Computed example of a mutant assay.
Amino acid sequence: GVRYHHVSTDEVYGDLALDDPAKFTEETPYHPSSPYSSTKASSDMLVRAWTRTYGLRTTISNCSNNYGPYQHVEKFIPRQITNIVDGVRPKLYGRGENVRDWIHTEDHSSAVWDILTKGRTGETYLIG
């Protein structure tokens, strides 16, 4: 049957801390820290409400930052690479204590395919 899959972000769980070894799980409470992550958290809640209220067959995935071929040059990883190639010192944000998780687009799309073909309706999957 038909199912709706909602691609979300791990940012709904809040910020990763350098000194905190804890990782997000499907049970981690939502703690969005920006307008972007707040709208993603609310869209996750809408999908869950559609499932509960209307019986819509849904799955949700929360994923980290993607990188890969054809990514716009202004995005973080391509910009760092072009800076190095051009002899420009790469940018360090803040004091360099920020933590960011990355996944290649092919790994992300593979995981979404697995969810679409093997996932259980109503489940949320973390991809990282």
Score class of each variant (00 low, 15 high):
Gly1Val: 02
Gly1Arg: 06
Gly1His: 07
Val2Asn: 06
Val2Tyr: 12
Arg3Leu: 13
Arg3Pro: 00
Arg3Gly: 13
Arg3Gln: 15
Tyr4Val: 15
His5Glu: 05
His5Gln: 09
His6Glu: 10
Val7Met: 09
Val7Arg: 00
Val7Trp: 00
Val7Ile: 14
Ser8Trp: 08
Ser8Tyr: 07
Ser8Ile: 06
Thr9Val: 03
Thr9Leu: 02
Thr9Gln: 05
Asp10Val: 11
Asp15Gly: 00
Leu16Cys: 07
Ala17Glu: 14
Leu18Gln: 13
Asp19Ala: 07
Asp19Phe: 04
Pro21Phe: 03
Ala22Thr: 08
Phe24Gln: 01
Thr25Asn: 02
Thr25Glu: 03
Glu26Ala: 10
Glu27Asn: 11
Glu27His: 06
Glu27Thr: 12
Thr28Trp: 07
Pro29Arg: 07
Pro29Asn: 06
His31Leu: 08
His31Asn: 15
Ser33Phe: 00
Ser34Cys: 09
Ser34Thr: 15
Ser34His: 08
Tyr36Arg: 12
Thr39Ser: 15
Thr39Gln: 13
Thr39Gly: 10
Ala41Met: 10
Ala41Tyr: 01
Ser42Phe: 09
Ser42His: 11
Ser43Thr: 14
Asp44Phe: 05
Asp44Val: 08
Asp44Glu: 15
Met45Pro: 00
Met45Phe: 02
Met45Val: 06
Leu46Ala: 13
Leu46Thr: 10
Ala49Thr: 12
Trp50Leu: 14
Arg52Met: 04
Gly55Gln: 05
Leu56Thr: 12
Arg57Val: 10
Thr59Leu: 02
Ile60Trp: 03
Ser61Cys: 15
Ser61Ala: 11
Ser61Tyr: 01
Asn62Gly: 00
Cys63Pro: 00
Ser64Tyr: 03
Ser64Lys: 00
Ser64Cys: 14
Asn66Trp: 10
Asn66Gln: 11
Pro69Glu: 11
Tyr70Glu: 07
Tyr70Val: 01
Gln71Ala: 10
Glu74Pro: 00
Glu74Cys: 03
Glu74Asp: 13
Lys75Arg: 15
Lys75Met: 12
Phe76Asn: 07
Ile77Gly: 05
Gln80Arg: 09
Gln80Gly: 05
Ile81Met: 12
Ile81Tyr: 10
Ile81Val: 15
Thr82Gln: 14
Asn83Val: 00
Asn83Ala: 15
Asn83Leu: 06
Arg89Val: 12
Pro90Arg: 08
Pro90Lys: 09
Lys91Ile: 11
Leu92Glu: 13
Arg95Trp: 05
Gly96Arg: 10
Glu97Arg: 12
Glu97Leu: 13
Val99Phe: 07
Asp101Glu: 09
Asp101Leu: 08
Ile103Arg: 04
Ile103Trp: 06
Ile103Glu: 03
His104Cys: 02
Glu106Ile: 02
Glu106Leu: 08
Glu106Thr: 09
Glu106Tyr: 06
His108Met: 13
Ser109Asn: 04
Ser110Phe: 05
Ser110Gln: 08
Ser110Trp: 02
Ala111Gly: 10
Ala111Asp: 04
Trp113Ile: 11
Leu116Gly: 01
Thr117Phe: 05
Lys118Phe: 01
Lys118Gln: 13
Gly119Pro: 02
Glu123Cys: 08
Thr124Gln: 12
Thr124Ala: 11
Thr124Phe: 00
Leu126Ala: 00
Ile127Tyr: 01
Gly128Asn: 13
